[in-house]
Amino acid sequence: MVTTTALEAELLALAGSVPDPELPVLTLAELGVLRGVQLTAPGRAEVLLTPTYTGCPAIEAMSADIEQVLHDHGIPEVEVRTVLSPPWTTDAITAEGRRKLAEFGIAPPRPTGPAGGPVAVDLTLRCPHCGSTDTTLLSRFSSTACKALRRCESCREPFDHFKEL
């Protein structure tokens, strides 16, 4: 394990403060996709980023935003590397991140079960608008790969659910 210097911790916090391009209420730190920042030489930083979904198109915008923020902090060379292992899971979203999702109108993911188990889509989910648990699944896939589309049977509003991964 490499020891983290004060500057690396500072850069990690900076990179972590970048908003998610598709869910701007969340920061990358709250989404749990940032795996570390390392200074490989003076003025050169390597950032490890993990995608939510393998095909997530937001990863390129995230990388560009991280590079920009570190450049602005005086790091001329920034390399953002994508790592797959260990795979990201919705359990990596912080408690604050979940709270913000719900506030934004997206039902946060529930804790996940063991890998390879059945996909739990039928359990009760709370409507982020009115709080009712009387909600139904409209589609397993919604505006992005990471969300499912549901409808609240009490207030009749449709809403996105950040589905468990």
């Binding site: 797959l84 292992s85 059945p118 896939f141």
Partner: peptide
């Protein structure tokens, strides 16, 4: 292929569930 497989298997579980339903 293991890191990709571990990542993708969770996505594929949703694909399979979609086809099953």
């Amino acid at each position: 292929l293991a890191p990709l497989a571990a990542k993708a298997v969770k996505e594929v579980a949703y694909h399979r569930d979609h086809a099953h339903q």
